[in-house]
Design a binder for these strands. Sequence first.
DNA 1: GACCAATTGAACCAGTCAGTACATTTATCA
DNA 2: TGATAAATGTACTGACTGGTTCAATTGGTC
Lengths: 220, 220
Amino acid sequence: MTNTAGTVRGKRRQTSWTQDPEGVRRNILEVARAEFVENGLSGARVDDIAAKTATSKRMIYYYFGDKEGLYRAVLEGMYDRIRSFERSLDLDALPPEEAMTRLTEATFDYHIENPDFVRMVMVENVHHARHLKASRTITRLNSSVVEVTRGIYERGVAAGLFRAGLEPLDISLTISALSIYNVSHRATVGQVFDYDMCAPDALARRRSMTVAAILGILRR
Amino acid sequence: MTNTAGTVRGKRRQTSWTQDPEGVRRNILEVARAEFVENGLSGARVDDIAAKTATSKRMIYYYFGDKEGLYRAVLEGMYDRIRSFERSLDLDALPPEEAMTRLTEATFDYHIENPDFVRMVMVENVHHARHLKASRTITRLNSSVVEVTRGIYERGVAAGLFRAGLEPLDISLTISALSIYNVSHRATVGQVFDYDMCAPDALARRRSMTVAAILGILRR
DNA sequence: GACCAATTGAACCAGTCAGTACATTTATCA
DNA sequence: TGATAAATGTACTGACTGGTTCAATTGGTC
C-alpha cells in the first residue's frame, strides 16, 4: 500500500517498512536540493544527503544512478518550476508600460522568493552548464518568458510608446540579470560593501530601480 | 641568486635547482587560479594544481598552508586587480552623463575581459563569501568605485541632469549586475536560449542596452 | 668554507567518498 | 497461494585526496 505522497517513514534500524517509491524519490530530491544548493555539486556529499534522508544511500543510486544523475534531477525540477511560473504570467490585458512593469516586478520577486533556484543556476554556470546540456528535458524546451516579453514589447512599439529596434531576448535578459544579482551576489556584496541587498528597504529600492532601468531602456 | 621574477624552472626529476621563491609563488598562484576558476573550490584538486606547476605539492603547503589558504590568496589577487582598475578611473573632467556612460562601459568591458574574476566571485558566492570574510586584506578595504559613482551622480544632480534621491551604491550595483551577468550566466543562457551573450554582436547590443538602462535610471 | 635559515623533493598516510555486492522484504498478479 | 518483479537495508571497497614526514639542497653571512 502506497503511503500518501510525500510521507516519510520513520528512521533507524527498521527491518520492516512500507513501499513508497514516490515518497522516497521526493524525499531524496528535497534533501539533495538543499545540499547541492548549499555546497555545490562537488561540495555536496552523497553520504550526507543519504543521512538526512528517511531512506538509505542505496536508494539514491537505485533511483538516480549516480551523483550527477541526482544533481540533474534536482536541476530539472528547478527549471520545471520556473517554467510553470512563466506560463502563469498573463499580461495581455494590460497596457504595454504597465505590463512590462508587472513582468519585471514578478520576475524580480520570483528570484527573491526562490533563492534555491538562483543558487542552483549559479552552480550550474560554474560547471559551464554541462548538466543542462545533458538534460533533454530542459534543453530546447525553450523558455516562454521571451515570447511574453516580445508580445508586450511589440504592442508598445506599435503604440508608439517604446522605441523600435530592440531584441526582446535582450530585454528579457536584462530583467533577469537585475533580478538574479540580488540573490546570487548577496554574499560578496554584503561583505565588500557592508550592504544586504535582500534587506526589505534595500530590496524595495532595488526593485523600483530595476523597473526604472527597464522602462528607461524602452522609452523613446 | 634569485631568477628573474616569473621565471619557471624546468620540471621532472631534478635533484638540483635554483631558489626562486617569488617565481614559485607566482607560478603556483597562476595555476591555482585557472583550476579554481574552472572547477570551484571543492572541485579543484590540489594534486592537479601541483602537477601543472613547475614545482611540487609540498611548495603549495609551504607557501599557502592549506587548500583554502591558496584559494584565499587567489581571491585576494583578483580583488587587488579590480581595485587598481577602479583607482585608474578618472572621469572628473567629463560632464556627468558622459562620465556615467564611460564608467558603465569601462565596468562592462572589465568584466568581459576578466572572466576569471567573474567566475571566482561566483564561486565565492556559492560559499557565502566565507573566504572573503576570512581575508582582512579585502574586507573593509572598501571599493572606491562607489565613490566615483557618487561623485558623478552628485555632479549630475547639481546640474539638474539626474533625478535626486538615489543611492550611489544602488547605481553602482546595477552597473555591476548588468556587467557581470554576461559572463557569469553565459553558459546557462547559451544553453537555454541558444544565445551567446559574449559573441561580438550580442555584446555590442548588450553594452549599449546597459548604458541605456543606467542613463534611463538617472534621467529626470 | 662553515654554519644556519630558507627552500625544496619524494614518498607516504590516514581519512573520505562515490559507488557496489548481496541479502531481504514487499507488492503484484495470475 | 505461489511466483516474479520491484524496492530497500547493511556492510563493504577501492580509489582518491588533503595533508605530512623526513631528509636534502641552496644561498647568504661571517
